[in-house]
Protein backbone atom coordinates (compact mmCIF):
# COMPACT_ATOMS: atom_id res chain seq x y z
CA UNK A 1 0.00 0.00 0.00
CA UNK A 2 2.78 2.41 0.96
CA UNK A 3 4.53 4.33 -1.79
CA UNK A 4 8.10 3.29 -2.42
CA UNK A 5 10.52 5.46 -0.46
CA UNK A 6 11.39 8.57 -2.50
CA UNK A 7 14.91 8.57 -3.81
CA UNK A 8 16.61 11.96 -3.50
CA UNK A 9 17.80 13.27 -6.83
CA UNK A 10 21.57 13.37 -7.14
CA UNK A 11 22.76 16.84 -6.21
CA UNK A 12 25.77 18.94 -5.72
CA UNK A 13 27.26 17.40 -2.55
CA UNK A 14 28.65 20.65 -1.20
CA UNK A 15 25.45 22.59 -1.69
CA UNK A 16 23.42 19.80 -0.17
CA UNK A 17 25.68 19.76 2.89
CA UNK A 18 25.20 23.49 3.37
CA UNK A 19 21.45 23.17 2.98
CA UNK A 20 21.35 20.46 5.63
CA UNK A 21 23.54 22.43 7.97
CA UNK A 22 21.45 25.57 7.61
CA UNK A 23 18.20 23.65 8.08
CA UNK A 24 19.53 22.05 11.22
CA UNK A 25 20.94 25.20 12.76
CA UNK A 26 17.89 27.26 11.84
CA UNK A 27 15.46 24.64 13.11
CA UNK A 28 17.49 24.18 16.28
CA UNK A 29 17.55 27.90 16.96
CA UNK A 30 13.85 28.23 16.30
CA UNK A 31 12.87 25.50 18.74
CA UNK A 32 15.54 26.14 21.33
CA UNK A 33 14.69 29.80 21.83
CA UNK A 34 11.38 29.22 23.63
CA UNK A 35 12.93 26.27 25.46
CA UNK A 36 15.79 28.43 26.69
CA UNK A 37 13.43 31.18 27.76
CA UNK A 38 11.37 28.59 29.59
CA UNK A 39 14.37 27.10 31.34
CA UNK A 40 15.46 30.57 32.41
CA UNK A 41 12.13 31.19 34.07
CA UNK A 42 11.92 27.71 35.52
CA UNK A 43 15.23 28.25 37.28
CA UNK A 44 13.99 31.41 38.96
CA UNK A 45 13.46 29.77 42.38
CA UNK A 46 17.21 29.26 42.63
CA UNK A 47 17.58 33.03 42.98
CA UNK A 48 15.15 33.25 45.86
CA UNK A 49 16.55 33.38 49.34
CA UNK A 50 14.65 32.67 52.51
CA UNK A 51 14.32 35.69 54.75
CA UNK A 52 17.80 36.31 56.09
CA UNK A 53 18.48 34.80 59.48
CA UNK A 54 17.72 37.37 62.09
CA UNK A 55 16.90 37.52 65.75
CA UNK A 56 13.17 37.25 66.24
CA UNK A 57 11.40 38.01 69.52
CA UNK A 58 9.76 34.86 70.85
CA UNK A 59 8.43 35.45 74.32
CA UNK A 60 9.19 36.73 77.80
CA UNK A 61 11.69 35.01 80.01
CA UNK A 62 9.08 34.34 82.67
CA UNK A 63 6.93 32.47 80.16
CA UNK A 64 9.57 29.74 80.12
CA UNK A 65 9.27 28.01 83.49
CA UNK A 66 12.64 27.08 84.94
CA UNK A 67 11.90 23.39 85.35
CA UNK A 68 14.15 22.01 82.63
CA UNK A 69 11.12 20.97 80.58
CA UNK A 70 11.06 22.52 77.09
CA UNK A 71 8.06 24.57 76.03
CA UNK A 72 6.96 25.07 72.46
CA UNK A 73 6.60 28.59 71.07
CA UNK A 74 5.60 29.75 67.62
CA UNK A 75 8.10 31.83 65.68
CA UNK A 76 6.27 34.85 64.37
CA UNK A 77 7.61 36.98 61.56
CA UNK A 78 6.54 38.80 58.44
CA UNK A 79 6.70 36.43 55.57
CA UNK A 80 6.48 36.77 51.82
CA UNK A 81 5.11 33.97 49.73
CA UNK A 82 5.82 34.99 46.16
CA UNK A 83 3.31 37.82 45.63
CA UNK A 84 1.55 37.62 49.00
CA UNK A 85 2.90 39.40 52.04
CA UNK A 86 1.86 38.02 55.39
CA UNK A 87 2.25 40.27 58.40
CA UNK A 88 3.25 38.54 61.65
CA UNK A 89 2.62 34.94 60.65
CA UNK A 90 3.76 31.81 62.44
CA UNK A 91 6.65 30.61 60.28
CA UNK A 92 7.85 27.77 62.47
CA UNK A 93 8.23 26.65 66.04
CA UNK A 94 10.97 26.43 68.63
CA UNK A 95 11.34 24.67 71.92
CA UNK A 96 12.73 26.84 74.72
CA UNK A 97 14.11 25.31 77.86
CA UNK A 98 15.39 26.80 81.08
CA UNK A 99 17.20 24.98 83.86
CA UNK A 100 16.22 25.64 87.44
CA UNK A 101 17.25 29.09 88.61
CA UNK A 102 18.98 29.85 85.34
CA UNK A 103 18.56 33.03 83.33
CA UNK A 104 19.77 31.55 80.10
CA UNK A 105 17.64 29.70 77.63
CA UNK A 106 18.41 26.86 75.28
CA UNK A 107 16.52 26.92 72.02
CA UNK A 108 16.07 24.10 69.52
CA UNK A 109 14.12 24.08 66.29
CA UNK A 110 11.02 21.86 66.19
CA UNK A 111 11.87 20.78 62.65
CA UNK A 112 13.22 17.24 62.52
CA UNK A 113 16.76 17.02 61.07
CA UNK A 114 15.81 13.67 59.52
CA UNK A 115 13.28 14.74 56.93
CA UNK A 116 11.54 17.81 58.26
CA UNK A 117 8.56 16.59 60.27
CA UNK A 118 7.38 18.43 63.36
CA UNK A 119 9.01 17.06 66.51
CA UNK A 120 6.77 16.71 69.54
CA UNK A 121 7.51 16.78 73.23
CA UNK A 122 6.71 13.67 75.26
CA UNK A 123 6.19 15.10 78.73
CA UNK A 124 5.68 11.72 80.35
CA UNK A 125 8.94 10.19 79.18
CA UNK A 126 10.72 13.53 79.25
CA UNK A 127 12.04 13.32 75.72
CA UNK A 128 11.33 14.60 72.20
CA UNK A 129 9.76 12.29 69.65
CA UNK A 130 9.34 12.68 65.91
CA UNK A 131 6.08 11.12 64.80
CA UNK A 132 7.32 10.31 61.30
CA UNK A 133 10.13 7.79 61.55
CA UNK A 134 10.42 7.53 65.33
CA UNK A 135 13.55 9.56 65.98
CA UNK A 136 13.90 10.19 69.72
CA UNK A 137 15.87 13.06 71.23
CA UNK A 138 16.79 13.98 74.77
CA UNK A 139 15.37 17.14 76.33
CA UNK A 140 18.47 19.10 75.36
CA UNK A 141 18.05 17.91 71.78
CA UNK A 142 20.67 15.16 71.93
CA UNK A 143 20.27 12.03 69.86
CA UNK A 144 18.99 8.78 71.36
CA UNK A 145 20.45 5.98 69.29
CA UNK A 146 19.69 4.05 67.30
CA UNK A 147 17.92 6.81 65.45
CA UNK A 148 17.00 7.48 61.84
CA UNK A 149 18.09 11.05 62.40
CA UNK A 150 21.62 11.79 61.25
CA UNK A 151 22.24 14.48 63.86
CA UNK A 152 20.99 16.08 67.03
CA UNK A 153 18.11 18.53 66.96
CA UNK A 154 19.15 21.87 65.54
CA UNK A 155 20.01 24.29 68.29
CA UNK A 156 19.35 27.94 67.62
CA UNK A 157 21.23 30.93 68.87
CA UNK A 158 19.27 32.52 71.67
CA UNK A 159 19.51 35.89 73.38
CA UNK A 160 17.85 37.05 76.57
CA UNK A 161 17.76 40.80 76.95
CA UNK A 162 15.64 42.77 79.42
CA UNK A 163 13.64 39.67 80.21
CA UNK A 164 12.79 39.00 76.59
CA UNK A 165 13.84 35.97 74.61
CA UNK A 166 14.91 36.29 71.00
CA UNK A 167 16.03 33.46 68.75
CA UNK A 168 18.06 33.54 65.56
CA UNK A 169 15.73 31.69 63.26
CA UNK A 170 17.27 29.57 60.55
CA UNK A 171 16.29 26.58 58.43
CA UNK A 172 18.77 23.77 57.96
CA UNK A 173 19.17 21.08 55.34
CA UNK A 174 17.77 17.80 56.57
CA UNK A 175 19.12 14.30 56.20
CA UNK A 176 22.82 15.13 56.44
CA UNK A 177 25.20 14.78 59.35
CA UNK A 178 26.27 18.41 59.47
CA UNK A 179 24.00 21.28 60.35
CA UNK A 180 24.07 23.51 57.27
CA UNK A 181 21.82 26.55 57.09
CA UNK A 182 19.77 27.03 53.96
CA UNK A 183 20.64 30.17 52.05
Amino acid sequence: MADPAPVPPPADARRSFLTKLMAMVGGGLATLTPVAAGVWMTLDPLRRKSSAASFLPITKLESVPDDGLPRQFPVIADRNDAWTGFAAEPIGAVYLRREQGSDTIEAVSATCPHAGCFIELDKRDRCFRCPCHNSVFTLDGGIVSPSPSPRTMDSLECEVRDGRVAVKWENYYSGIAEKVARP
Binding site: P74, P90, I91, G92, A93, A110, C117, F118, I119, E120, P131, C132
Partner: peptide, 8 residues
Amino acid sequence: PSQPYAAA
Protein backbone atom coordinates in the same frame (compact mmCIF):
# COMPACT_ATOMS: atom_id res chain seq x y z
CA PRO B 1 3.32 25.02 58.72
CA SER B 2 3.03 26.03 62.36
CA GLN B 3 0.76 23.14 63.31
CA PRO B 4 2.38 19.77 63.87
CA TYR B 5 0.79 16.88 62.05
CA ALA B 6 1.70 13.68 63.83
CA ALA B 7 -0.43 11.54 61.55
CA ALA B 8 1.80 12.33 58.54
